[in-house]
């Protein structure tokens, strides 16, 4: 009977596991903490990029400083309490602006609002850009979606988003590649439900915009 067997079979494994766990978790945590700020910065830039994209304003990708600069120059955040009618008071509590007033290319004013709706798998959150009279879309950008990769998730592809520029509601869906009139939108082949979800959000956003921006213009 070896003396060491109690130590080896009972205590050592536990001790070993604890040490290894502590070492590895520390290393992981260290890396996490050192990148935390960067992650937060990325997320705030992500939001800003969405607003610029929806407004149709160009910006250099991958250059946070410049994006920040363009954002500050062209976008004005409008809080819920200032302007807009009382309906938008619901937003007042969460610190997020009710809408964004944007300087479009020719110096005219446009607006961007965020809206969300049910997608197939989860919420779809998108930014919609509007012309001054809130009748025409300047563009859209998706901020959050959990749709099926390769199918529903294709709503984030450039061709799908670009088609919204200059379009006017109320929208109808047509077969992919055949959209012509200002109220027609290409659906995504094989992603009927997601396409319908986006259609619904797009048709409802005009009302949302009126509510949030209407009074304060």
């Amino acid at each position: 009977m070896k003396r060491e067997s109690l130590f080896m079979t009972r205590i050592y494994p536990v001790f070993f596991m604890v040490v290894v766990t502590v070492v590895f978790i520390s290393v992981v945590s260290g890396i996490y903490l050192s990148t935390k700020e960067r992650v937060l910065l990325n997320e705030s830039i992500f939001q800003k990029m969405a607003i610029l994209y929806a407004a149709g304003i160009d910006f250099p990708e991958g250059k946070p400083q410049e994006i920040q600069g363009i954002y500050e120059e062209k976008v004005m955040e409008v809080e819920a309490s200032a302007g807009g009618d009382s309906q938008s008071g619901a937003e007042a509590g969460d610190g997020e602006p009710a809408y964004y007033e944007v300087e479009l290319s020719a110096g005219e004013t446009g607006y961007v609002v965020f809206t969300s709706g049910a997608g197939l798998w989860g919420e779809i959150v998108a930014a919609f850009g509007f012309s001054r009279d809130l009748s025409t879309l300047t563009g859209i950008e998706f901020v959050e979606q959990n749709e099926t990769p390769g199918l529903g998730a294709r709503i984030t592809e450039t061709w799908f988003k670009e088609q919204f520029r200059g379009k006017q509601g109320p929208f109808v869906l047509v077969e992919e590649g055949t959209a012509d009139d200002a109220n027609e939108l290409d659906a995504i082949t094989g992603a009927t439900r997601t396409s319908n979800a986006v259609l619904k959000i797009a048709n409802e956003v005009f009302e949302v915009a009126e509510e949030k921006i209407g009074g304060g213009r």
């Binding site: 494994p13 596991m17 290894v20 590895f24 996490y32 992650v39 990325n42």
Partner: peptide
Amino acid sequence: PSRVRMMVETLIIASFVIIVDIILRA
């Protein structure tokens, strides 16, 4: 120790994957 072999391997692999995830996210 042979008893905890698979757990240790899993822990090490998982740690590196988390690191990859964090780096990609950043």
